[in-house]
């Protein structure tokens, strides 16, 4: 790991790479309902980005990407998933059943909004929280920040 931190080229290069990774991660999250991807895969991509940030910049790097504690993400993710589940109970019929709304939006045209996207966002948040939490706790203890 120290190798990564000692190489300025890698450090700068990987830092640049985090932005496209974040975009890819969000793309996977939102495209997932109709194309390969989804909250789980999207969250994992974000997790890889966080791992790279840790490798190049240490703890501070993970904080640059995720400003909050991992427990906040875990709790928020579970809460979002549960709330969406109850939304299914109200509009869809059963707990966690998808409700589908057909919307006509300016600029976007006709859009199908599925309540399951909320559930997927919950999954995404939990997975990012898991990655952040594991990297921070397992990475704690030595070599804070770039060497």
């Amino acid at each position: 790991m120290t190798v990564l931190r000692e190489s300025i080229i890698l450090r700068r290069g990987l830092r640049v790479a985090t932005a496209p990774l974040a975009v890819f991660s969000l793309y996977l999250l939102f495209a997932g309902h109709n194309r390969p991807g989804g909250g789980f895969a999207g969250g994992l991509v974000a997790g890889v980005a966080i791992a790279l940030a840790w490798a190049t910049e240490g703890e501070a790097g993970t904080r640059r990407l995720v400003a909050v504690r991992s427990t906040v993400l875990l709790g928020a993710g579970l809460a979002v998933a549960l709330v969406t589940g109850f939304a299914g109970l109200v509009w869809g019929g059963a707990f966690l059943e998808s409700a589908v709304w057909d919307l006509s939006l300016p600029l976007f045209g006709d859009v199908k909004l599925v309540s399951a996207i909320g559930f997927d966002i919950g999954v995404y948040l939990v997975v990012v929280g898991v990655a952040t939490g594991l990297i921070r706790s397992l990475g704690a203890g030595s070599g804070e920040g770039p060497a």
């Binding site: 309902h33 998933a81 998808s98 399951a116 999954v123």
Partner: peptide, 24 residues
């Protein structure tokens, strides 16, 4: 019934969403 073309994802977030909830 779930307005999704990606069956794997629909399984995760709708058909078997209770499992996913347990997993997360």
């Amino acid at each position: 019934s779930a307005a999704g073309k990606n069956v794997v994802n629909v399984i995760l977030v709708d058909f078997r969403a209770m499992d996913t909830l347990g997993e997360i």
